[in-house]
Amino acid sequence: MRTTKVLIVDDEVEFASTLSERLSLRKYDAKAVYCAEDAFAIARSNPPDVVLLDLKIPGMEGTEIGKIIKQFNPAIQIILLTGESENKIISENLGKDISDYIVKPVEIGELTKKIDNAMKEKEKLDHSKGQP
């Protein structure tokens, strides 16, 4: 199993960078960006496998960003980071552009499990795409 490329998109710099470092320590290829534009740039130049996306980034809804990123590669898995457990936006988008969600503050074990699951899904999609 190759290294999972994780992109963290959150305007809370300290949160995003620290989480990125913690994932890196756990052998993930993690990267943190703090605005939508940077996220799109990375998605274009070095597409990630899994995107951890804050529900609210200044200037844009998390789901909007997710939608745009998915346009680069629909196989990219998006996990929403949210402050509350039950949310209309999540329930409306879950299973469409959003494959999963996790509530802040996050339990690192739970998060890695979700990332791994998303990665499996991504590989499945890549596989079916690579072998038409």
């Binding site: 809370e12 949160f15 620290t18 913690r22 320590l25 402050g83 802040k104 503050p105 996050v106």
Partner: peptide, 25 residues
Amino acid sequence: VAHEINNPLAIINEKAGLMKDYIDM
């Protein structure tokens, strides 16, 4: 208030988590 507290709380959680990661290593 809860929303505003939740974000720093998440940061505390990550920072402490990172600390624990390093200590464990």
